[in-house]
């Protein structure tokens, strides 16, 4: 099963490599990885999506918690949560495809953020499934380049991940 784990870690040099190193060292997999500072300058928030059965994911969270640089973490998929990813895509937009791309962009509530005579650059946010669906829809027209941020997420409701 796919899990989204959000981690608050010390904003220190080397902290990121400890987290990433752990995954390769213990043969855990990383599907996406996303990291940035938070409102607290001493903390970074890192979100990783991984796939594994309950036992593997339990080991992942235990080992992550063991890292001295990891202050707190939550497996967002254990409860209701909001998952978002941002993607920038360059798609071919010539001839009749130009209109078709525009229509699909509207359907997906995406935005065209850059235009040339031959292509559109589309910005789209949503969960990973929505982004995949957009890419699939664009497939026959011609996807030229994809830049995805990886998943970021937050729990629904009153639950707060903080120190």
């Amino acid at each position: 099963m796919r899990h989204i784990i959000s981690i608050l870690m010390e904003n220190e040099p080397g902290a990121l490599s400890r987290v990433v190193g752990l995954f390769s060292q213990r043969n855990f997999n990383i599907e996406t990885l996303n990291v940035a500072p938070t409102d607290d300058p001493t903390l970074s928030r890192l979100t990783v999506t991984t796939v594994g059965d309950d036992r593997v994911v339990e080991q992942i969270t235990k080992h992550l918690n063991k890292l001295v640089d990891v202050v707190k973490l939550v497996d967002l998929t254990e409860g209701a949560h909001i998952e978002r990813e941002l993607m920038l895509v360059k798609v071919k937009a010539t001839g009749s495809a130009r209109d078709e791309v525009k229509r699909t962009v509207d359907i997906f509530r995406a935005q065209i953020v850059d235009v040339t005579p031959s292509l559109y650059t589309v910005q789209i946010t949503g969960d990973a499934g929505k982004l995949d669906a957009f890419l699939q829809a664009m497939g026959p027209i011609g996807v030229l380049e994809v830049a995805r941020t990886g998943v970021s997420g937050i729990a629904r409701g009153e639950k707060i991940l903080s120190v």
Partner: peptide, 11 residues
């Protein structure tokens, strides 16, 4: 004392 040792190989 180390939670990651528990249920690592033997449940």
């Amino acid at each position: 004392i180390d939670p990651s040792s528990i249920s690592k190989s033997v449940q």
